[in-house]
Structures are given as structure tokens and as C-alpha cells.
Design a protein around this nucleic acid. Sequence first.
DNA 1: CTGTTAGCGCTTTCAA
DNA 2: TTGAAAGCGCTAACAG
Lengths: 336, 336
Amino acid sequence: MIADQLGLSTSTVDRALHNRGSVSPKTLKKVIEKAKEMNYQPNQSASFLAKGKHILVAFVFPEYPNYFWEEIEMGINRALKDIQHYGFNIEIIKTPDSVAEQMKIVENIIESDDYNGLVFAPIDSTPFTNLIDKGVDKGFPVYTFNNDSPSSKRLFFVGADYLDSGRLAAELLDIFTNNPQKFAVITEEMSTFQMQQKIIGFREYMANRTTLDFVGPLKLNRYAFEKSISNLEKDLKNVDGIYVACGALSEVAKGIKKMDLKKKPILIGHDINKEIYQNIRQDVISATICQDPIYQGELITRIVFNHLMLEEKINTEQNIVKLEIVTKGNAKYYIH
Amino acid sequence: MIADQLGLSTSTVDRALHNRGSVSPKTLKKVIEKAKEMNYQPNQSASFLAKGKHILVAFVFPEYPNYFWEEIEMGINRALKDIQHYGFNIEIIKTPDSVAEQMKIVENIIESDDYNGLVFAPIDSTPFTNLIDKGVDKGFPVYTFNNDSPSSKRLFFVGADYLDSGRLAAELLDIFTNNPQKFAVITEEMSTFQMQQKIIGFREYMANRTTLDFVGPLKLNRYAFEKSISNLEKDLKNVDGIYVACGALSEVAKGIKKMDLKKKPILIGHDINKEIYQNIRQDVISATICQDPIYQGELITRIVFNHLMLEEKINTEQNIVKLEIVTKGNAKYYIH
DNA sequence: CTGTTAGCGCTTTCAA
DNA sequence: TTGAAAGCGCTAACAG
């Protein structure tokens, strides 16, 4: 219609509208004005059909803890259902919790010509900066999610603020306890970046509590949870609250039930699965902090689609997802 | 491709694939099998383009409380951004909180031929059953959201469970108070269905608290909040907790600050806006229960799109959204 | 710098 | 019951 009204060919209009060059400034201006005047909205279906563009994006993330990443995948698939018709495909690659292994896998993806982009959940922050930059510099788009690499040139980040997550955990312990004397913090021997952040946040919140006693961070061994938890019995003998900063909340709950403690401690942690849910219902766990993994998965997928397929500009550069408080009263909504 | 391999024309294949009739059982079977064999995925862009289908859906909902419905609109627009290119348009119509007024508006929409569907947030449940059924019976699709009309034939509902919302409010009062003696419940003179549900849920949770004293439901006048709140000062003199079941949480917070109460009561309510947020930060409000209006708006819009434009079947018939607990520690994530 | 043309995969009308 | 053909709005290769 623009072409008709201006006595131009559709191709000229197309070039003008999309800044493909080879258009005189005069016609360019005419076209842009006309488009605005008649409030032209491009027909995306026609555009997709004509371009026949097909894209494959690699999604790389750890497999542990399983239940968390399963929900992320649910969210990815939810977005995919709406957009894969338009030529957007993905491949999911799971990695161990090892910087070296992740490096290798990501390097291969960036080197190869098999993918048009990478969505990546690094288990640590700074070690990946150079690798990500290498990709982005040669025009290979890299997005981070769940864990960021903020000093790199990644195009976008979707995920939670783990410092704040630790602070919120501290606040929850505060709300659920009454005149507490002693808190314990539990993490893993193989402590990841995000666990460390959580603990820093927790401590920050508790910094001015001079009358409080803290034990920990007590360390669990991922490959021998049961034993390493039962080893903590003496440390937990008379704590009022326990903060589990790693992915072993249900295991800790299970261990505590077996212990012979002076008083039942308030137990706070992160994320949710069926076991955690049961322990909330049984008042073993008082609250857990969730970060809506389904939404995270859906969001990063839609953002990458919009960027790669619709060539939409990225304004913000990150989306920090909200932290949700889950207790007995609303836990049922968080289980899928 | 299917047509090629089978020596048929594309139109026959099209008819077969979409059960448009006029296909012999033999060819029908052949086509279906071939499609499955080569895992045929229809190209939605081509389909949209060829059909040139355009749809207009009416969204009808109350305007009060403003801040809540603004967030719903944000969610609707978020979905719209992705799908309006495909010929999906909406028109938003706001109504007063009056059954009669809503009736009139909805009736007009169902009678007229201007819209292809209706998304409707009724302020009450049963009164709209017949009207909704009238629409659905004549093939005019009606969906409910925020408030349901479960006995009607509406095709889908997106919204919260308000009974459960009241229960959760009660649990929160429980968590935040310590050995409470007396709780107050506040609602409006012009009490809507959803406020009533919340109070029923609240009472259900508190039913076995024989040692507790309850005042209320105290009633506010929407058109004279300040005055009707200050009138409650004597009732609130020595309560330990207040549950605001209506949309006047920030007004109540403001009123309480001015009162000369024996002890600072724990204040719990629903939803969030800038004023509520400030009062949470200042420890005037302890917690508020949110139901992610942005998500609700986005979800109902996508569901209606999928149903009307993609002719997707509706399996579940409803989506009950989660109830989120917002306190000082995570409130900043809930403000937009 | 501009225009002509073919074609993306599907739907729909009309004729056989 | 089937097929031929036009066309949806846009893109891209090519010629001028």
C-alpha cells in the first residue's frame, strides 16, 4: 500500500523500511513518513514466510539440582510451543558442576558453526568472561541466565540476585523465630558462586546482631549427604534456626527429623520439589525462597527469539527475577 | 511435500489434514499416515498469511482498584506485543462495580456482531451465569478472569482462589504475631463477592482459635475512606493484628499511623502499589498477598489467542494462579 | 538508486 | 472427490 500510494516499487519500500541501504535520502524520508502516517504495521507472518529463516540456539546449563533445572526446561518448552513454528529451534546441553567442563563445552559451541546463539548458565562468574567475550566479539550472540557473568559482554541476563536471596533468607529466619540465640548456616564443600553469594547476603543482614551466635557455614558432601548431615548433629544441638544455602534442603530436613535436638529449629532454604513440599506441610521446613524457574526459562527463551528472529533491540541488558516466599499457606502453588 | 510424495494436489492434502471434508476415506488415511511419518509441522506463518484472519476480542473489567487493573493491562499488552501481528486485536472496556451496569455492557457485546469473543471479570459469580450461557450457547466464546462464574459455561477461567487467599492472610497474621489476643477484619460496606470469599477463608483458618478475640468485619465507605477509617479507632485500640480484605490497604495504613493505639498492630492485606510498598518499607504493613496481575493478564490473553486464532482445544478449563507473599524483604520485586 | 520477478507454504474458489 | 490457480504480504536475486 505504501508503494502504491507513493508510486514506488515494494522492494524500494522494503529497503527503506528496513534500512537495507541503496535508497536515496529523499525517498527514504518519504517512505518513513508515509509509513508513520498510515500507521503501517509489518505483517510478521509474511516476513517469516518470505525469509524462511531457521535458527538453532544451544542452551547450556548444569544438571544439578535436577528438580530445579527440570522446571527451567518446562518454561523453555512453554515458550517454544508458541514460537518454534516460526523456525526457532533449540538444543539443550547439560553439564557437570565444573568450570573446566563447562569451558570445554562452551568453547566447542562458539567455535563450531552449528549454532546461531548460546544461552548459558555458568556455574561461576569471572572465569567465563574471556570465553563469552570471544564469542560476542566475533558476532556470536551469548546470553546468560540463572548465573550471570556481569563483567563479560553477554547480551542479556535473566536470573535472580543471590546476594538478595541470602538477605531474604535471613529476614525469614527473623520472622519465624522468637528471641533466637543461635543460627546455623549450611552449605556444600564444593561451594559454587551462587552459594557464596547467598551466604554473603545472609551475613550482611545479620551483621549487627551482636547478641546472636552463629555456627557454620557447615559443609555437606554432595556425594554423601546422609552421612555428612548426621555428622552435624552436635553443631545443631541447640540452634533456633538453620539456613540451608545449597541445594540440599530436603536432605537436611530428613536428617533433622532423625536427630535428637533440644528444640525444633526453624528451617529455611531455597527452591522447591516434592520432598521439600512434604516437609513444609509437616512443619519441618518453615519457608523456602523460590525464583520461579518456569518463568525464567520462558522469559530467556522469548527474549532470545525476539532478538534473533525479530531483530529486536535489547535495551535493558538484564532482567532480575523476583524472589518468592513459600510457606505452608501457599506451597501448593509452587509444585508441578 | 506430502502432496508431491503422494501424487495428490495440495488442496486435497489441506482438506485431509484439517478435516474439511470432501476427501475419500482412502486418501484421508494415506495423508494422515504420511504426515505422521514425515513428522509434518504446519507452517503457522503461511497459514496466518493465507487466512488473513482478523479477530477483535472485548476485555471487560472493573476500574477499581485502579492500580490492580493497570497491572492486568500491562500483562495484556505484554502478550499483545507478541501476537497482535498475527491479526489479534482487543478492546478494553472498564465498568463500575455494579452488577447491573456490567450486565448491560456484557449483554450489548454479546448481542452485537462487533466482537469475536469476550474476556470478562464479573464482580459477582452467580448473577452472570445465564448471560454468559446465552453467549456461549450461540457460539460466542466467553472467558472469565480474576473472578469466576463457575456454574456458567464460560470456556476458561484465569484467576486466584479467594477463599484460599483469606486463609493465607490468616496464616500470615499467625506468623507475624506472637501470642495474639485480638484480631480485626476490615472490609467495605459495598462488599464484593471476592471480599466475602476472603473473609470466609480467613474465618475458616481461625475457626478453632477459641482463645482469640475477633472484631469485625468492620466496614469502610469507599467514597469516604479517611473518615470511615478514623471512625474505627476505638475498635482497633488494642488489636494485635488487622486483616484488610478489601482494596484499601494503603488507606488503612495511613489511618493507623494517625491513631493513638496501645500497641502497633500487625497489618496484612492484598495486592501492592507504591503506597503499600512505602508502608511495607516503614514496617506499617507487615505483609501483603499478591496474585501476579501481570502474569494473569498475559496468560488469559495468550490462552484466548491460542483458542481463537490457532483453534487450539481447551483441556483444563481453568488456571488458578499462585498466591505470593510479599514482605519487606522481597517487596521491591513487586513494584513496577 | 530503483524496479521486475519469483517464491515462501498455505487457503480458498472454481471448475472438472 | 479431486485439482488448478490465484493470492495473502513480504523478501531477495537480478537487471537496469
